[in-house]
């Protein structure tokens, strides 16, 4: 088995998901199957093959350094779950 429950637990913290013990159990099995399937890739010899991160061959796409209007603050904050008149609010950020 390629994936352990501890792996899955660690990944859940990295990906900021809280999984119940039952979810963790199920996820370990399901992800394990998928990861095993992905190991199919290992059988291919890719020596000397350039990785392909984009499906297009574009380069040097830039914009001019021109200031454009920002969003009115009310609009910027409108979708925030918690905010005051000026800022987004989150549980205290302390030495993190």
């Amino acid at each position: 088995m390629s994936l352990t429950r501890a792996d899955v637990e660690k990944v859940s913290l990295l990906g900021r998901l809280l999984l119940t013990p039952a979810e963790l159990e199920r996820m370990t099995v399901q992800l394990g199957q998928v990861v095993d399937y992905m190991n199919l890739l290992a059988e291919l010899d890719t020596e000397g093959v350039q990785p392909m991160a984009h499906a297009i061959e574009l380069a040097n796409v830039f914009r001019d350094d021109v200031v454009r209007p920002s969003l009115p603050r009310e609009q910027a904050l409108a979708n925030a779950p918690q905010h005051d008149r000026e800022c987004y609010l989150v549980p205290a950020v302390l030495g993190e």
Binding site: A76, Q82, D84, E86, C87, Y88, L89, V90, P91, A92, V93, L94
Partner: peptide, 14 residues
């Protein structure tokens, strides 16, 4: 974060 003011929340300015 204004600890002195006893704030429970941090404020975010982007």
């Amino acid at each position: 974060h204004d600890e002195a003011a006893g704030q429970a929340d941090s404020r975010i300015d982007l």
